[in-house]
């Protein structure tokens, strides 16, 4: 098992594949939020976790943090720091989803689409999905040898 992990941590192609996949997911997830900040603000409100004066600023800024994190992962600019930022965001999303799961609050996660009919995705499904991306994100963070396709490491 340890050998398999060590092999993964030095496999340049695997690191590149994971980094590009994670980057693509973040870019994709950011687009609909950038296109419809008003709807995304309502989704943040739906989480019932942040004070009202923070909601609009979060709806404006967060999608661009996702976008730049994704682009930097794809382009290989600061790959390790970008992956850390990606995992910090995934961690925040998982905490937010978990809190609402615990208190039985139904909401639209707003992860990949802004659904005007108030679609409520399966919270467990969301948590598992974020956890999988989080584990993927560990590879570019812990990777130590030279990486493929990086502009600035």
């Amino acid at each position: 098992m340890n050998t398999a992990i060590e092999n993964a941590m030095t496999n340049k192609k695997l690191e590149c594949l994971v980094r590009w996949t994670l980057g693509g997911v973040f870019v994709y997830a950011s687009i609909h939020k950038i296109l419809d900040p008003s709807e995304f603000a309502k989704i943040i409100y739906g989480y019932q976790l942040v004070p009202g004066y923070v909601i609009n600023l979060s709806a404006i800024i967060l999608p661009f943090v996702e976008l730049f994190t994704g682009l930097f992962l794809l382009l290989g600019i600061y790959p390790r720091s970008s992956a850390i930022l990606a995992n910090v965001m995934l961690g925040i999303f998982m905490v937010a989803i978990s809190i609402n799961l615990i208190r039985g609050h139904e909401f639209d996660c707003g992860c990949f689409s802004v659904n005007k009919n108030g679609h409520t995705a399966s919270n467990i499904e969301l948590l598992i999905r974020d956890a999988i991306w989080f584990v993927f994100g560990l590879l570019p963070i812990l990777f130590r040898t030279e990486r493929l396709f990086v502009i600035r490491s």
């Binding site: 900040p37 009202g52 909601i55 609009n56 404006i60 800024i61 943090v65």
Partner: peptide
Amino acid sequence: AILFALGVNAMSPRGIALMG
């Protein structure tokens, strides 16, 4: 990201107020 976000929001017709 913050500079781009505020810039795009200010220029976009879909931009929102800084406080709702």
